[in-house]
Each structure stands twice: as C-alpha cells, then as structure tokens.
C-alpha cells in the first residue's frame, strides 16, 4: 500500500534508469507470494507470464475504499477464490490466495465482528494457502484483538499466516506481531512476516520466522538494497514479492529482482530460493500447493477445463498486438 509522496523527492531517489533485460533470467520460474491482482490489468498478467511468473498468492487486503457491509467482504473473498483465480488461469499463472481481515478495516469493530463469522467458511476452500494479510496498521486495540482471533483461527486450521507489518513505527510493530504470534503458540516456521527491511530482518530470521521483502518503489524496499540483504543474510527463509496493488508498484518486481541478483553475482541456487522455492516451502504447509500445477503445464488438472471457454485456447488468452491501430 502506498502513501502520498513528493514527486520531486521520488524523482531524486529513482537514480539512472537501467533497461530490464529478461534474458538474464530466461527460463527461470518465479513465484510472487504477495500481489493484489484484483487491482491490476490483464496487460500485467501477460507481462508477468512472459517474465516467467508461474504462480502467485493474492492476500486479502484493503481495497482503498473502506467497505461498509458484510456482503462487500463476502464478494471480495469470493472473487479471490473465484473470478480472479480464473482470470489468472487464462494467462497460465496459478493463482492462490490468503484470506483474512486486514488491519485497517479491523478498526470498524461492528463490521469486523461479522467478518470474523464468515471467515471459517472461506479458509478451508481450495487454494487458500493461509490467513492473510493480517497484523498491525495503526497498532490499535481493535487491530490487536482481531489479529489474535485470526491467529487462533490459523492454529485451528493448521494454516500459515501472512503478517502485514506497519509502515509507521515498523520495528516495534514487527516485534509486537511476532511476540503475539508466539504467545498464541504458533510455530514461527508457519508465519511469514512481510514488508521487512534492513532494520527488521535480523530479528525475524533469528526468531525462526520467514522474512518476506516487498520490492515496491519509493515506500518499501528497492531491489538494489535487496541484493545487499541476500549477500548479508543468505537465502534461507527469505522471499521477495511485489505487493503490486492500486498504488505505483511493479508486478514484475520479482523477476526484475532476480535479474538484478544475477547481474550482481548472486548464485542461481540462491536466486531460486528467494524468488521461488522459499515461498512454496512456506505456504505449501497449507497442503494446498501442488507444484505440478504450475511446473508441468501439460499435466492438466481434470477437474478444471479452460479450453472449453470461447476466449481460451489451451488455457491461454489470445494475444493482441498492442502496437496495431486495428482492433478486430
């Protein structure tokens, strides 16, 4: 999620543009474990597929416009496991999601109570690989209350938890998120602490949690900094994501970061771990990820047929030539 920025300041931090050369990571597969495709276009799906993204996780989050009723939440969760998953499949990308009540809207307690009641109906659905993204935003009492309740839900269902850490007062918020999770008896190996930076990563790893890094322009991590983190902390339990959403963000953040790591001399094995394997290891603890679904495209799941749809050929959307003035 982004916030307001000074354009001049942003420009100053951008540095000199450097072309993204996909050939550096050609043939590699990527898994983006945090991206809000609901807020993105089909062009993004196409670009992600072209760049090697084979699977992704879409966490339930704040849509920008606060919801005023339960049905809006219900429809949003339904679209994550229904329509958006289908849309993604049209581009050959396997779509998973995490379901939860986000921290911001946890502050609307009357509504939050109702949302908590319908969550159990969604978390056991196919392809739901965790509870998320939950945690702290303003670090209010209400946020803590529903964070705790959802941790209990995750414990009962045996699901991983995707924890959003706050923009403001990040270090303390991150510590507090971990303390509370441990207090509820969860295994840190089942918890992915998201949006880390140089200040938080050491403690997260030392305490046995997974550490996710969001490569997001201006407000979160840049990928040059990310390369340094992998150099310093290695590749164990570290993963990168784009968290691309309705803000100025980049759905190609994962393949771009992989390409940059390659150029900066990080080993292929380490790149594979932080841009693909570790995310699968963490979220497959849900029992809902079958790697064959996205590594063997010819191995068609007989329970799902896409080629029957008029606009789909072999699970793919026909490509249009965007440079042509003719639309037919």
């Amino acid at each position: 999620m982004c916030c307001s920025n000074s354009i001049e300041r942003d420009k100053a931090t951008m540095g000199k543009p450097k072309a993204f050369d996909i050939s550096a990571v050609k043939g590699m597969k990527f898994f983006d474990p945090h991206v809000h495709m609901t807020s993105r276009t089909t062009d993004d799906y196409q670009a992600m597929a072209d760049a090697g993204v084979v699977a992704l996780i879409e966490p339930a989050f704040w849509l920008g416009q606060p919801r005023t009723g339960l049905d809006s939440f219900r429809d949003y969760y339904s679209s994550l496991i229904g329509w958006e998953r289908f849309r993604s499949s049209q581009f050959g990308i396997k779509h998973y999601c995490t379901i939860g009540l986000n921290s911001r809207e946890a502050n609307n307690e009357a509504l939050a109570e109702q949302v908590m009641e319908i969550l159990p109906l969604f978390i056991y659905k196919e392809g739901v690989v965790g509870i998320g993204e939950i945690g702290f935003d303003d670090q209010t009492a209400a946020e803590e209350k529903y964070y705790r309740q959802q941790l209990e839900l995750a414990k009962e269902a045996g699901l991983p938890v995707q924890v959003h850490t706050p923009h403001r007062d990040k270090k303390k918020g991150t510590q507090r998120s971990m303390d509370i999770a441990l207090e509820h008896g969860l295994d840190p190996y089942q918890i992915i602490i998201d949006h880390n930076n140089e200040e938080t990563v050491k403690e997260v790893l030392d305490r046995g949690f997974f550490a996710a890094f969001t490569i997001y322009p201006f407000t979160k991590m840049g990928n040059e900094r990310m390369v340094e983190i992998v150099k310093q902390y290695g590749s164990e339990r570290i993963m990168v994501n784009s968290a691309a959403d309705w803000g100025i963000s980049d759905p190609l953040a994962v393949p771009k970061t992989a390409a940059l790591m390659k150029l900066k001399g990080i080993s292929d094995a380490a790149i594979e771990l932080v841009t693909y394997r570790n995310a699968i290891t963490a979220f497959a603890q849900s029992g809902q990820i079958d790697e064959a679904d996205f590594t063997a495209p010819k191995n068609i799941d007989q329970t799902e047929k896409f080629e029957g749809n008029t606009i789909l050929r072999g699970g793919q959307q026909p490509r249009t030539d965007k440079s042509s003035i003719i639309i037919s």
């Binding site: 219900r74 339904s78 289908f86 196919e126 799902e304």
Partner: peptide
C-alpha cells in the same frame, strides 16, 4: 452458491 470457487460451483 454465493461464495463458491470454481470447483465448488461446478
């Protein structure tokens, strides 16, 4: 029906 994912709807 109201909250079905694809396989559920099928």
């Amino acid at each position: 029906f109201l909250s079905a994912e694809v396989n559920e709807a099928v």
